[in-house]
Amino acid sequence: MTDHTEELHVVTVDVNGVRRTASVEARKLLVHLLRDDLGLTGTHVGCDTSQCGACTVDIDGQAVKSCTVLAVMTSGSSITTIEGLARGGGALHPVQAAFHEHHALQCGFCTPGMIMSVRQMLGQNPNPTESEIRHGLAGNICRCTGYNNIVRAVQSLASEAPRHD
């Protein structure tokens, strides 16, 4: 294996509405930029193999797994993390409030990623059926809740009366 000169690349991203600049190695993953360089530790590293979704963040309006994105590739993007939803310790985002209300978490490790995925899902489909909710959360794994309360939390946010499959 060849050692390459570790040239640093300047990455400028908008994170939760604030312009941030960092010098990173090309191999740095976005989740490590967020957690280690920018101190935003709400985004979790779970499986580190693009399965579990704990690292889900929003890049330019799309939920993505930040353990499988090179930080250098995101330069110029707008990124929203879980910290960007209830800014300055203000009122919870509606998805956060629904998770709180419906007990949609136990240990909470998957919750930031889960909430970022639900946010995208409801943006695309404001009134999902139960099976659409479960299909839409296929990229987020929770080992505590058994998912039922997560589904109930999402159903409580539906824009209309429950639609059945």
């Binding site: 060849t2 191999r27 993953l29 693009s50 499988t68 994105v69 250098v72 590739m73």
Partner: peptide, 26 residues
């Protein structure tokens, strides 16, 4: 080449590939 990177980046992380240069075509 790298675009979405959803095969390549996991492969890099497992060090099953170690390219000299990644060309971002995205």
């Amino acid at each position: 080449l790298v675009a979405g990177g959803h095969t390549l980046i996991p492969t890099l992380k497992l060090r099953l590939a170690s390219p000299a240069l990644l060309i971002d075509i995205s």
